[in-house]
Design a protein around this nucleic acid. Structure first.
Lengths: 249, 249
DNA sequence: CTGATTATTTGGTACGACCAAATAATATTG
DNA sequence: CAATATTATTTGGTCGTACCAAATAATCAG
């Protein structure tokens, strides 16, 4: 199809098929969305160059760029500065990226960090209760391994941090619901910078590890109340440290 | 200031003040962001027309439009088809709007709705436990009123639905953490259409109300285990209905 | 073959123009 | 004069061309 359209009309493809009701960009977005979801465009693949897409879809570069921006804001493609947009099949983790912009504002509001951390405490307490009641043998093993790794890293600040995160991550995995790991990623992403700037006192690691161990033992003993209590104590201590770091700067 | 700049340079405001490092659109976004957060641009107010902003910021319409699109994708402004962009000070509820695009895809994936509903069950169980242990007198009152409203609406399908949602909403409010009501809004927004299309059997309302009453009584008796059990039963029944509606279409 | 020079590609930006729909302003008519 | 029809004006959406800057590819000089 030549589609050598004249410059008379501003509707670029009067020959076009479907009933593109609204804006041209919306139409193009839905087209590409469809091709992503149908698997025609696979994850990791990249979209054509903007100048190619404008002939493909018979639209101006303006529209193409707007469409790509919309897809990016939906998390369906990743538009890096100088490269072709990369297709990202939506998953639960992508949510974190999409939210990043607005959450950064919310965190700077009054009690922003506190609200998020309170939510984390609330969730993790519920998670350990669930774990104490329903953790499988495999879950227990995973927990035990994570705990051991945490113990071994007790003198290495960076490593301890990552094993700490990993230990908590196991709790988020137990349910098998993929939403929870994504939530965990969100918490770590948005709270990490606050944790990082905490003063590095060695006894902190000792204290954290002991708490992890206590939580683990409670789960092992199938004691949800004890697990809850230990986790609450652990996380509230953590919060006090974060808060202290904040206020004293 | 006339700023009748020549067409020689493509940098529109060489006179410009700050160190606009990256893309022009990014700079403009951060400018407006600042004015929103500082209160200079109040919530509900609308931005100038695009053609005004381009002279205000000394940038082309292309950039202005891109900046507005970026702000919209961050949930800081609401850009309706034919009107000026409306400033929206970011709050926890806006998150729902920002996520809407991607979540609709996730819900259509394998187990998408189930995962979301499982999360809801998990959260609400934790909430009723918390309520049973810590609900204040005011919380109990609010719960009682919501329960009564629910009872009164038992023969009106639409009204029952809204009072049902309202009853659960009270649970999300108890903590005082503004994140929870936002989460509740998210659940209702994304699960509502599934609920709506459920067959309208009158005995369903009876059943739901009875469950609400049981949960309320457990909270009143400060019995977290009982509250949890009743809530779990209630929500799993609800899930089975949703699932049934799905599979049989 | 290596290193320097020169296209080519590609996203970012700028203008200027036109459309379509809505609104405001004005003119026309009963 | 009021009601209606007509004509600007405003405003977001789209188009097309042109240029920049950085990166990559291709080519040429030594």
């Amino acid at each position: 199809m030549s589609t050598k359209q004249s410059a008379l009309s501003n509707t670029p493809t009067p020959d076009a098929d479907s009933k593109k009701s609204g804006r041209a960009a919306d139409f193009m977005v839905s087209q590409i969305e469809g091709r992503i979801l149908s698997g025609d465009l696979k994850d990791g693949e990249n979209l054509p160059a903007e100048r190619d897409m404008m002939v493909q879809y018979g639209m101006s570069r303006t529209v193409v760029r707007e469409a790509v921006a919309m897809l990016a804001s939906k998390g369906l493609v990743e538009a890096k500065p100088r490269f072709r947009p990369v297709v990202k099949k939506p998953n639960y983790e992508s949510v974190v990226g999409v939210l990043d912009g607005i959450v950064s504002h919310l965190l700077n509001q009054q009690d922003g960090v506190k609200n998020l951390h309170d939510t984390r405490i609330f969730l993790e307490i519920a998670l350990v209760r669930e774990a104490a009641l329903n953790a499988s043998k495999d879950d227990i093993s995973a927990l035990r391994e994570a705990l051991q790794a945490n113990k071994d890293a007790i003198n290495d600040w960076e490593l301890f941090y990552s094993t700490d995160v990993a230990f908590h991550a196991v709790l988020y995995n137990i349910s098998g619901n993929p939403i929870f790991p994504a939530v965990h990623k969100a918490f770590t992403t948005w709270l990490a910078e606050r944790w990082r700037k905490m003063p590095r006192k060695p006894e902190r690691n000792q204290q954290s590890y002991a708490a992890h161990e206590a939580v683990f033992n409670a789960i092992l003993n199938r004691d949800p109340d004890e697990a809850e209590a230990k986790m609450r104590e652990h996380l509230e201590t953590s919060w006090h440290n974060v808060k202290f770091t904040f206020e004293s700067q």
